[in-house]
Design a protein around this nucleic acid. Structure first.
Lengths: 326, 326
DNA sequence: CCGCGACATCTTTTATAGTTGGCATAATAC
DNA sequence: GTATTATGCCAACTATAAAAGATGTCGCGG
């Protein structure tokens, strides 16, 4: 690989002059400029970013720490975030923690050692103090990581209300709510409590099932729904994320119950699965683009030195009516 | 951020000794070793990888170049690849090209400039020469990138045969095959030609539709199926990737046709969608784990200097019988 | 026509944070 | 007395950036 030195030699100037041509700094004569560019073309020279980064003390790398990229919610977020970061000159290091705290710690150390400029964190098994001491611009995606770290999330209070309404309007009597594992401190659980209390106000029974920490493998969702519906045959509604209710629809249809007549189903998120289901799923859609824009915007502002510590709720969550509700 | 110098001062030894402790090189007494580690703990010291990488001339970074992480096939591959890379001490830079050649070129330049040790490429809009001149260990994931770059893929010839069999066994008469855009040089198209010729041998008509270059937005699949089924009402079978046939099932059910009695459907890939569909999809499953293992293994061997240029077909593709075939 | 400042152009030097090799210098062990 | 262990010191090295310095040219006033 040619270095700036090779370019300097070939074009007959000193290294600094080449550097100044590259960075458009100081005075350069047209003649020198052309000579340098000719040499760079001839050598197919690409400046070494490692050296640049070392000097500049910044890398334009951003870490994305999530439990699992194969989960559609995170894949969708990663998709949008990557586009926005790319457009603003940043590169993304993908870190899947697999909900494993050792991996999470390893990745955090790696990110520090590699001097990433910032991180977007959508998981945490570690203590908030572990994040605080990173002294790195961080944004929490749907997770609380401590006082000084802003959390960006959709309006999950409204989300919970929107999800409850079709069950209320459709006169449900007993709704199964399958929730994520609440050991993680996250604003998304708001939707679960709001959902339950909204139902309660209308005297609709709400059966809560909280997924265990290791119950995030999606193959387990089907069996879980089987268990719950056998234990509570009176259930006539299911509310959970798209990924879970996708198995719910399959289960209900396979057991010859009618949707929405016998059982109503409402999803949360608005990923691919909600668009391909038949009957068409009624779901609460998260504002993926707005979330991503806010996250990237706030993170880059933090990187540029702005002090932002307050949590941010992004508007745009909405209910999409399908045929799984009455 | 503390540097190796700070650690040296606090522990009362010289920088060289700290470096020796860090890299387990030369003679170090237990006493010094402990002193240095104490100081590192106190300072919360993390070695600067930029400086290390610069000296070592390698970064342990791998670029993953794919069209779109929100596509379930790539999300699933990325998931497995990331785990394998992490376990072997490598980090992943995620590069979504969005099937845009300018972005692809930008990303390739970035990867060179940042001195990644290698790349896994699952897309290409550029010329093979653009990849060749990178002089970087690269593995093609389901794409041909030129003579010197090995391509890893599943056995798509067998895949095509497996996909055709249920249509033959179920006495289909006219099958719609929706194919990806063939402008990209890829071994996956083998399945399409094998599929068509297998059907041909049994006098089953095969209507091919090739997606246009810009027709990879999944929202368009539904309308496309609508068009095709209206144009050819005699169609009694559909074969395409899971992502496409997910919309196919929805469409067929919405139009009150019966699956598999009126229309048989077979998917390809074996992503999440194939597991949640009702009726349960019959599909050809790609060996995601074996593919990922081979890709990572071959790439890391190339990085370690082995010369590997031959393409590799991974075994393990199989047909999973569901209820969308007779 | 000379002196001086302003400006253009390019070079020298130092810095980024770590690794490594060579060599010097002890102390300890056998 | 010599081999081994342990550590320090210095310089060279990775590829680039930038502050400071050197040199040259030009215009203008005296």
């Amino acid at each position: 690989m040619p270095t700036i030195k090779d370019v300097a030699e070939l074009s007959g100037v000193c290294v600094t002059t080449v550097s100044r041509v590259l960075n458009k700094r100081g005075y350069i004569s047209k003649e020198t400029y052309d000579k340098v560019y000719d040499a760079m073309d001839k050598l197919d020279y690409q400046p070494n970013q490692l050296a640049r980064n070392m000097f500049r003390q910044r890398t334009n790398f951003i870490g994305l720490l999530i439990p699992d990229i194969s989960h559609p919610f995170f894949a969708e977020m990663a998709h949008h975030i990557e586009i926005l970061l790319f457009n603003r000159g940043y590169k993304m290091i993908l870190c899947n923690t697999q909900k494993n705290d050792a991996r999470e710690q390893d990745y955090l150390n790696m990110l520090r050692q590699n001097k990433v400029d910032g991180a977007i964190v959508g998981t945490h098994m570690l203590e908030t103090s572990d994040y605080k001491k990173l002294s790195l611009p961080i944004i929490g995606l749907d997770v609380f990581l401590g006082d000084s770290i802003p959390t960006v999330c959709a309006n999950h209070i409204l989300g919970g209300k929107l999800a409850a309404k079709p069950f209320i309007d459709g006169s449900a009597r007993c709704v199964l709510q399958i929730k994520g594992n609440h050991d993680i401190k996250s604003p998304v659980w708001m939707r679960n409590s709001v959902f339950a209390s909204e139902l309660g106000e209308h005297n609709i029974r709400c059966i809560d099932y909280e997924l265990k920490e290791n119950e995030f493998y999606r193959e387990q969702y089907y069996d879980l729904i089987d268990d719950m519906l056998k234990q509570y045959p009176e259930i006539d509604g299911i509310f959970s994320t798209d990924a879970v209710v996708a198995y719910g629809i399959k289960y209900v249809l396979e057991h010859k119950k009618r949707i929405p007549d016998d059982i109503m189903i409402v999803g949360y998120d608005g990923v691919e699965a909600s668009k391909t289901s038949y009957p068409a799923l009624s779901y609460v859609e998260q504002p993926f683009e707005a979330l991503s824009e806010t996250i990237v915007d706030v993170l880059l502002r933090k990187i540029d030195g702005e002090s932002i510590t307050n949590n941010i709720t992004v508007d745009g969550i909405r209910y999409v009516e399908g045929n799984t509700t009455r």
